[in-house]
Write a protein that binds this DNA or RNA. Structure first.
Lengths: 157, 157
DNA sequence: GATGCAAATGCAAATCATTTTCGTTTGGAG
DNA sequence: CTCCAAACGAAAATGATTTGCATTTGCATC
């Protein structure tokens, strides 16, 4: 089964139509290890003589992100968003502050993480940024109360 | 020694003039545990009947960030930048995806981090984002070569 | 305290990534 | 093959942030 039919399935499973543009963008992601900006995708498609509007790319990226097929990331100090295929693995980004190259790291336990990364990959860590997202105690209690009283809860968006 | 004179010193040490606006902004940061957006600072100053232009706030925040007095952060899914005073400690942000409240966490070792946070603070972790910034092997070698050959290096920016 | 000049500020316009509107085209269910 | 919602193109809109330029202010020096 080739790439295109795989794409077709991915899209169908997400309730999306199988269009030329969506296939092209999924293919580009598969050919690139690096997360890409909308404009990089635009340039790549131009390279392939594929005519597409930048707003269409943004629209597709937004849709694919909402469906969980793609992950949107933003890197410190960079104004443009980066997108990459979601392989459903918990991974981290190593961002070189000089060449901006992004390396994927599959392993996570942060304990001795820095040391190991330095030894194994020769990556000198200067800074890192960790953000943890979740629900605080307060909101959790509020949600529990709502459940009890039967008041309708916020949609999951 | 009061707050204002401390600000005066901070600014002087960074080679910045001691202006009313800069003092006001530093004071606002000290009164707020949460990181703030430029607009929140604007609103807060309006509250205090202090007239200031939004672009001036952006300019001051940029300057203070460049001088290392302030830290700029961006939170996933939020288009506005957040600013907070730099207390020169390695800290992480706990972001509640419901109320958006940000909690500072001083401790870091990530090992058992999530579990501990859940137990100690009642914060249910749904996701986290870790970005590691540094210099990759490749760039490091390039830099070493340049050092040898005496070619001038990029300024530290 | 007066003076001068670079730095800081206000205001309006510009910028830049991203989104939206709306008219047209297309995928795919029936 | 037909039809309609979904997708797309083009251009304009948006929203956060930045910039150009004229004016004001901090502060070192007189």
């Amino acid at each position: 089964m080739n790439e295109i039919s795989t794409h077709k399935e991915m899209l169908k499973d997400s309730g999306l139509k199988n269009t030329k543009h969506r296939n092209s963008i999924l293919s580009i992601f598969e050919k690139n290890a690096q997360p890409l900006t909308a404009e990089q995708i635009y340039a790549e498609l131009a390279n392939q003589n594929t005519s597409i509007n930048l707003s269409t790319i943004y629209r597709i990226l937004k849709t694919l992100t909402e469906k969980g097929l793609v992950i949107k990331t933003t890197i410190k100090g960079d104004s443009k968003a980066l997108f990459e295929l979601n392989n459903n693995e918990h991974r981290h980004h190593l961002v070189c502050i000089e060449c901006k190259e992004i390396t994927m790291v599959d392993e996570c336990p942060f304990e001795e993480y820095e040391k190991k990364l330095k030894e194994k990959m020769g990556f000198t860590i200067l800074d890192h940024k960790l953000e943890i997202y979740g629900v605080c105690n307060h909101c959790q209690e509020k949600a529990d109360e709502k459940n009890k009283t039967g008041i309708d809860q916020p949609s999951k968006g």
